[in-house]
């Protein structure tokens, strides 16, 4: 939290400790557990295929959002920091997808050339 140095001063010397604020933390925990449970449901109740993989990746990105936004507190940082982290990550995901798609195509055309 960016402003911790300010609001800690208020009670650092008074000796009184405020009550914990943990509602959001536990809510995030239950969301993460729920998403994991849904992933397992799909793993056992759905035939493997690209649709199931797309569902898995979508749910994973949801989980990643909650971990980064709430646990790592990025949602509450300045806009500049959010973009500084998000833009390279999005470019990286683009790179990964490009490498996978092009690499698979390249692999198939080169290795299958002599078959």
């Amino acid at each position: 939290m960016a402003s911790h140095s300010h609001h800690t001063d208020e009670f650092a010397h008074s000796g009184e400790i405020p009550k914990p604020q943990t509602r959001v933390i536990w809510k995030t925990f239950f969301i993460l557990c729920g998403l994991t449970a849904i992933e397992f449901a799909f793993a056992f109740m759905m035939e493997p295929g690209s649709l199931r993989n797309a569902i898995f990746i979508g749910l994973t990105l949801f989980k990643a959002f909650y971990i980064v936004a709430e646990f790592m507190h990025l949602k509450h940082e300045t806009k500049g920091l959010i973009w500084a982290v998000l833009v390279p990550t999005v470019l990286l995901i683009w790179l990964l997808v490009a490498l996978l798609v092009e690499g698979t195509f390249y692999g198939e055309s080169v290795f299958n050339y002599f078959d």
Partner: peptide, 30 residues
């Protein structure tokens, strides 16, 4: 199938929660 890895996932998510609770306690100087 995947039961043990489910347990491992739960343990790691729980550890993340206790970590964020430690950070929260740090904000309160507790």
């Amino acid at each position: 199938p995947l039961a043990f890895v489910a347990l491992m996932t739960m343990i790691l998510i729980l550890s993340s929660v206790t970590m964020v609770l430690a950070v929260e306690a740090g904000h309160r100087m507790d």
